[in-house]
Design a protein around this nucleic acid. Structure first.
Length: 911
DNA sequence: TATTTGCATGTTCTG
DNA sequence: AGAACATGCAAATAG
């Protein structure tokens, strides 16, 4: 019945053991590579892999039921949901809203309970649509996320948003499949936007307190829905579709939705809630999807509360996201990143008099170039073509755009031809940019005032810009260590995102992402506050700190590349935090704090305390088994230890500030290795705090190489010449790393060389290389040809690469030719004559000429020649004498010339 | 010499 | 793979 899996009834952290709380207590989390979902327990703050306790899929029958009145999907199986429904005498359940609003009118149950905060990186959760729907019978469900209320709504075509409580990764697809089954797997084609008023009224978005905004018609529709949630396909299918087009009066007096009949012209007046629809759900990447969802699912104006909404009072201006009007020449579907999000404040400011309507067109996050002194703002092509006046000449035309304050700015709207396309720019934006104090990462929005069609621009400032190292940006961009709290909220827009647990500005985020990959070191870059970014990571580190091998577990020692690794069959356990110290004698202690009296007690090293611990539990030391017993450590001593402990933790934090995980590459390992040799190794000195928390499988007090490596900082250092095991191990490891590096490098070089050879082999007709004049034999390419010959693949060519030294080297390497690219290039750049002179190639030509009777050299078996070259002094001299006359000739000429001398030359050679 | 302009090119994104 | 876009760079122009 209750959808609470017993296995997950408690926090996995044994030390915490918090019972499975009301849904929603497991808040922060992130998807794991393993496919699970790690979250932080609110109580202990530790990371653990969540087990589902509201198992929607498996508890389908008992855990989930539809409200008999409004059809809302209710979870009736867990503690947290007990007040959100009522069992009916007739069977079935009734949601809390329907209870409160009895009567024929079906009451919307849109106000979602506060349930669950999805992981910061929602990729998994919002995985690809294909992943969500194997076979895709349900074409485009929308996963909606109300970041503020921590809810996830899954909008299906049957228009049944249902809340996912404690949704586990991967379950979304199950849920959707389930919904699909329930709906009879109707195949509904998602049409392009044509949204009826009724449709809009039925928008199931969480943002809308229905009582205020829902039109009567929509309510009727909903009523229909209640009768048969699956019957009305024609209306329901368009629910999540397309951008919402509507125009409202002031929210608190409106209570009425005035929708345009089509999506062509979404008029927006200051308090219009905008929504994104199906297209968004289908066009966005999963990540964007998630991010976007956080943006557009903002809490609506609290019209139902009867007070006019005041953005400032509320702490943030309401961010409206509008799908831009599908108009203009291009009619291209704009990329979502250009969809305008505009705040109430902006709209109010822009619109001025209430008679005008603002049509948000698009927005652009300023790039460094845009915001730079160059004064050019690159316009998205589709936007420029769709919303700006047509231009046929590159010179374009002047364009006047008014800003929110009413000031008019004059720009040149033009384009550059670019790759058979156009690149639209707005020139002369510098004064405007400067006036508005915009910088890279800020967003400029373009809107149009109707009637009149006047262009207006607004702007949003992006995040605060504080320094952040590359690695951080990279990490942020990849979401590797992002907690939602990463972005500090220093401005109003940011605060929205932050409050909603999302990024402050998707555009800005994209900008960061992009820049982090493309901006070089010399470029300006967006810099951000980094402290909060580490919150999650540090929490993880802290969690790691508490992981210990299971007490009963015995390690199996395996050797991998001459190194010993301890493997445990049992998973690690969480232990209560303890501090390890080592005395000057080398003896180590473990200290643990009593949960009652907070006194620190000494424990044996190998003891693992999994949960609460009190002095009374101290069976190891009878003297200290009571809270009344004095502390063994003097106050000063204790302070000292705790300080050191904190210091180490702080250093750890700093260390991770500098070392983001993705960048722990070989060089970092090298550095680590070196650091381990010359840095703090071991724990000499009185009561120094040992760091024994490097790896969950390491035992407390472990002195293996990993465990004793300090994150950074002070400490006794080993002598560089130290030959202790630790130092030797580190050196050995370092050496191996370097060797591997070299090996990789040479492999790469060889691969490149062989590629070239292959290319030459394809491209060059046999023998063509030496039929050229010597002057042409001076390029790397020719050099490659020679290499090809040398490799013996084409025996008809002269080996110009031969060198006695290299031959020796070859022999040393078991006959395998070793060719250095540098030496080859050197050789290739030398004058052929001198090279030939050096290598006795004239005699080759002469000999060849005598034997073949042809005037060209190429057909000669070069390698043979090289190898058969006389090695004795006398022959060398003889050859040298014969070589003189051809020093300044080409190979061909030399060959011809030598024809006549061939006989005598060979005679001399023979003697 | 500094700034502007036009284009080319490399990178990223999208279908 | 192709389109879009950010930016680098060199020529042109202005100061």
């Amino acid at each position: 019945m209750a959808g609470m899996a017993a296995a997950a009834a408690r926090c996995m952290n044994a030390a915490c053991g918090a019972p499975a709380p009301g849904v929603g207590e497991w808040r922060k989390g992130w998807p794991l590579r393993s496919g699970g979902f790690a979250v932080l327990c609110d109580k202990c703050g530790l990371a653990f892999e969540q087990l589902v306790f509201c198992d929607i899929f498996h508890q389908k029958e008992s855990g989930w039921r539809d409200c008999s009145f409004c059809g809302k999907r209710l979870h009736c199986g867990c503690v947290a949901s007990k007040n959100s429904f009522d069992l009916l005498d007739s069977g079935g359940v009734q949601c809390v809203n329907c209870m409160k609003n009895p009567g024929p009118q079906p009451v919307s149950c849109q106000v979602a309970p506060k349930l669950f905060l999805p992981p910061p990186n929602n990729q998994r959760l919002f995985g690809k649509s294909d992943e969500l729907l194997p076979g895709r019978p349900l074409e485009s469900p929308s996963l909606m996320l109300d970041s503020r209320s921590d809810d996830i709504a899954i909008i299906t075509k049957s228009n049944h948003p249902f809340m996912v409580k404690n949704l586990e990764i991967g379950q979304s697809s199950n849920i959707l499949r389930q919904k699909e089954i329930e709906n009879g797997a109707r195949q509904i084609k998602w049409e392009q936007p044509t949204l009826s008023i009724g449709d809009m009224g039925r928008m199931p978005f969480l943002i809308r307190p229905q009582s205020a905004l829902e039109s009567p018609q929509s309510q009727c529709t909903r009523r229909d829905d209640n009768r048969d949630p699956t019957a009305d396909s024609t209306t329901s299918e368009s629910i999540s579709e397309a951008g919402l087009s509507m125009s409202l009066g002031i929210a608190n007096n409106g209570n009425k939705m005035e929708a345009t009949s089509t999506m062509e012209r979404p008029m927006v007046s200051p308090t219009t809630p905008f929504s994104e629809g199906r297209e968004l759900a289908t066009t966005l990447s999963p990540f964007q999807h998630a991010q976007r969802a956080r943006h557009f699912l903002t809490r609506p104006p609290r019209v139902a509360e009867g007070a006019a909404f005041d953005p400032m009072r509320d702490g943030f201006p309401h961010l409206r996201v509008a799908r831009p009007p599908a108009e203009g020449r291009g009619r291209n579907q704009l990329l979502p990143r250009y969809w305008p999000r505009i705040t109430d404040q902006e709209l109010q400011q822009i619109s001025g008099d209430s008679n005008s309507t603002i049509v948000p067109l698009f927005e652009k996050v300023l790039s460094a170039s845009d915001a730079g002194r160059i004064g050019r703002l690159v316009l998205p092509k589709a936007c420029a073509e769709a919303y700006f006046p047509p231009i046929s000449q590159p010179e374009g035309r002047p364009l006047t755009i008014q800003d929110a304050k009413g000031k008019e700015w004059h720009f040149q709207f033009r384009f550059w031809p670019n790759n058979n396309s156009r690149m639209y720019v707005l020139e002369g934006v510098t004064p405007c940019i400067q006036s508005l104090q915009l910088q890279a990462g800020d967003t400029v929005t373009f809107s149009r005032i109707e009637p009149g069609g006047k262009l207006v621009m607004g702007f949003r400032k992006a995040t605060n810009t504080v320094s952040l190292p590359d690695s951080q940006i990279s990490a942020i961009a990849t979401g590797s260590l992002l907690g939602d709290s990463f972005f500090s909220n220093t401005n109003e827009n940011l605060s929205i995102a932050d409050r909603f647990g999302g990024r402050p500005d998707e555009g800005s985020f994209q900008f960061l992402h992009k820049r982090s990959r493309s901006i070089g070191s010399k470029s300006r870059r967006l810099l951000m506050d980094n402290e909060e970014a580490l919150e999650l990571k540090l929490s993880w580190e802290e969690a790691q700190e508490l992981l210990r091998p299971a007490p009963s577990a015995k390690p199996t020692v395996v050797m991998i590349e001459d190194y010993e690794f301890e493997e445990y069959d049992e998973p690690p356990v969480f232990a209560k935090r303890s501090i390890f110290t080592s005395r000057s004698t080398g003896e180590q202690d473990q200290w643990i704090q009593c949960d009652d009296c907070s006194k620190w007690r000494r424990l044996p090293l190998n003891v693992i305390i999994a949960s609460k611990w009190r002095c009374a539990d101290n069976t190891w030391d009878p003297k200290s088994c009571s809270c009344s017993a004095p502390e063994e450590l003097a106050h000063k001593e204790l302070q000292n230890i705790l300080q050191q402990y904190e210091e180490i933790r702080r250093r750890k934090s700093n260390y991770f500030l500098k070392q983001s995980i993705p960048e722990m590459d070989a060089s970092s390992l090298d550095a680590l290795a070196t650091a381990a040799v010359f840095g703090e190794v071991g724990n000499q000195g009185a009561a120094s705090v040992a760091t024994t928390t490097k790896h969950p499988r390491h035992r407390p007090g472990c002195t293996c190489i990993v465990c004793i490596q300090p994150p950074s900082g002070k400490g006794p250092k080993h002598n560089p010449a130290c030959t202790c095991n630790v130092c030797m191990t580190v050196r050995r490891r370092f050496k191996t790393l370097m060797m591997r590096k070299k090996q990789r490098q040479s492999e790469r070089e060889e691969a490149e060389a062989s590629k070239r050879i292959a290319w030459v082999g394809r491209d060059e007709p046999e023998g063509s290389n030496l039929s050229r004049s010597p002057q042409t034999v001076d390029t790397a390419r020719d050099c490659d040809v020679i290499m090809f010959d040398k490799a013996g693949a084409n025996k008809g060519h002269i080996d110009l690469n031969f060198h006695p030294a290299s031959r020796e080297e070859e022999q040393q390497h078991g006959g395998q030719p070793r060719v250095s690219m540098v030496s080859l290039l050197e050789v290739a750049n030398r004058p052929l004559e001198s090279y030939m002179k050096q290598n006795g190639l004239v005699s080759l030509a002469a000999e060849q000429g005598s034997s073949s009777g042809t005037a060209t050299v190429p057909s000669q078996p070069a390698p043979m020649e090289s190898e058969e070259r006389p090695s004795d002094e006398g022959r060398a001299v003889a050859v040298e004498q014969e070589r003189e006359p051809v020093d300044n000739m080409s190979v061909d000429e030399a060959a011809c010339e030598n024809q006549g001398n061939a006989a005598s030359a060979s005679d001399i050679a023979a003697t």
